[in-house]
Design a protein around this nucleic acid. Sequence first.
DNA 1: CCAAGCACCTGACGGC
DNA 2: TGCCGTCAGGTGCTTG
Length: 271
Amino acid sequence: MPELPEVETIARGLAPLVVGRTIEAAEVTWAKSCGGCAETFASRVVGRRIEGVRRRGKMLLVDLDRGMLVAHLKMTGRLWVPPEDFQADNHTHIKMRLSGGVPLHFRDVRKFGWLRCLSTGELAAMDLYRTMGPEPLELDAAGFRKLFAGRRGAVKALLLNQKVIAGVGNIYADEALFTAKIRPDAKADRLSAKRLDRLYAALRAALEQGIAENGASFRDYVNARGDAGSFQNSFQVYGKKGHPCPRCQAELQAATVAGRTSTYCPRCQKG
DNA sequence: CCAAGCACCTGACGGC
DNA sequence: TGCCGTCAGGTGCTTG
């Protein structure tokens, strides 16, 4: 699942491949993936020059000379520059051709993701910077603690809530909670400052390691060129129900918290 | 404010 | 073999 480190890896890899190029053609074969109307999408992007590639939370932002391409990859989405001999399969929903003959494809097996071309006005209405929570890697410990004050919900539900903090998904939430020795269903407003500081450090460490390892590739995720990351080899608990805890050897358990499967150690993670 | 359930989709996998 | 149910999970929506 592309979470913050995966989207960051894609943005960094995509930039040198596409910045400075002009979108010369666009073909949409699944209109829902571009916001509903293939013709509107094509007319908006064709002729635009790509000026930058960035990330905000889990969203991928492609700056254009007028407007912006905004993508959410959800679980299986991919925005990439395929190799020259790549034959687009039936999961490729948008094919763009950039100047210099460079292809830029949007592919999404599950079709939950999307890629839209937004005008400056639409971007202002979307207000990515205010409706989404702060970036965890641009936040200090005190700012992080404030996010949990007066919140009665489960700590994991808050970590996954993009309005509270941007970019964290199921993998990095479970890994950070394990490192911080906090159960996913612990009530947020009952965590001491000391434990929140531990969670802050653990979350940053997990995200930074994820970026350093080019993301976690255990299902569909690959970077902008189609290469796998390696963070999946560093998972301590995610997807490891029934395995021994890497810290205390107790059997890892799974429970549903905030509607998601959550894997944790029942002995060394405390509620 | 918070939780739970559903919808959106497809592929993988286990059971029979 | 193949059919069927279940699961995977990000987010927006509704309902309680």
